[in-house]
Each structure stands twice: as structure tokens, then as C-alpha cells.
């Protein structure tokens, strides 16, 4: 009976939506921003504003094209897949409105930029958090 309970509990844990690793939006610890709302993250990542809410420059970074993390980020943030995001950014870039987030090759490269720039904004798996950054938004928040 105890074995059945243990197996059931394990299956339940595996089936929970939260079992997949959570994505978090982070900035350098020296950035004065302590938290961002979902709308404020959308504003920056979708090129509506080029600054944080306090008026400081924002330099958003993207994870590699066609990576599952990038796809998951945009699906959760604006319910759009990468194909639509690419077309969206072609419109914004060539209308002269804004430049897209700078694409990185890996989470490590993202962390490297976060360490040295207080203007950088990025999304990473929660397990990759380091002391030099702080979480300003969790993708699973509503």
C-alpha cells in the first residue's frame, strides 16, 4: 500500500505543470528596478519602450533562435510563437521604430552580459540564477 502511494505521488509530481523548469526575467543586481509587471516586460520585449519604467535604458537579450526556452518565453509572455515574433520584429525594425532584442548563443553568454551591464534584461531558467542578478518577474505569475 505504501509503495502504491509512493508511485502515485511520484506520478502526480511528474504530471504537475510546474514540474517544467520555471523561466524568470532577471536584471543586474545594481539595477534600481526591483520588480516588473507582465505588461512592463511586454512593453520592453515587444519594442514599445526602449527604457525601464524609471527611464533608464533597457537592453533586452534573447536566447538562441528556435530554442525551446525562447519559444516558451514568448508563448507565455504574449501567446505568440517564434514565427510571429520574427515577422513582428521585421515590421518594427524596418519601420524604424525599434531594434529587436540582441540574440545570444547560450544562457552562459546571457549571464556574462548580465554580470557587466545594469541595463541588460533577460530571461533564464530559474536553476541558472547567479548572485550577480535578481529576479524581477516570474513567467508563471499572472
Amino acid at each position: 500500500m505504501a509503495l502504491i502511494k509512493l508511485i502515485s505521488l511520484s506520478l502526480l509530481l511528474l504530471s504537475l505543470p510546474g514540474y517544467a523548469e520555471e523561466l524568470v526575467v532577471v536584471v543586474n543586481k545594481d539595477n534600481a528596478i526591483s520588480a516588473l509587471s507582465k505588461q512592463e516586460v511586454i512593453d520592453i520585449y515587444m519594442g514599445r519602450y526602449v527604457t525601464f519604467p524609471d527611464g533608464k535604458n533597457a537592453k533586452p537579450l534573447d536566447l538562441p533562435a528556435r530554442s525551446s526556452l525562447k519559444n516558451e518565453f514568448y508563448l507565455k509572455l504574449v501567446n505568440q510563437n517564434e514565427r510571429k515574433i520574427n515577422a513582428y520584429w521585421a515590421r518594427l525594425l524596418f519601420s524604424g521604430r525599434a531594434k529587436p532584442p540582441v540574440s545570444m548563443t547560450s544562457v552562459n553568454e546571457v549571464l556574462g552580459h548580465l554580470r557587466v551591464s545594469e541595463f541588460t534584461l533577460a530571461y533564464i531558467p530559474e536553476s541558472e540564477l547567479i548572485d550577480a542578478v535578481k529576479v524581477v518577474y516570474r513567467l508563471d505569475e499572472n
Binding site: A87, A90, R91, F94, S95
Partner: peptide, 17 residues
């Protein structure tokens, strides 16, 4: 400056978009 009168007026040449 692009005229911003139409839906496509800011990027009428960008076929990709």
C-alpha cells in the same frame, strides 16, 4: 519619415513582414 497613414505604410517594401 514614413507616413503612418496606412497599416503597411511603415514597411510596404518588407515582403517578409
Amino acid at each position: 519619415i514614413n507616413s503612418d497613414i496606412y497599416l503597411l505604410s511603415e514597411y510596404p517594401h518588407v515582403g517578409y513582414a
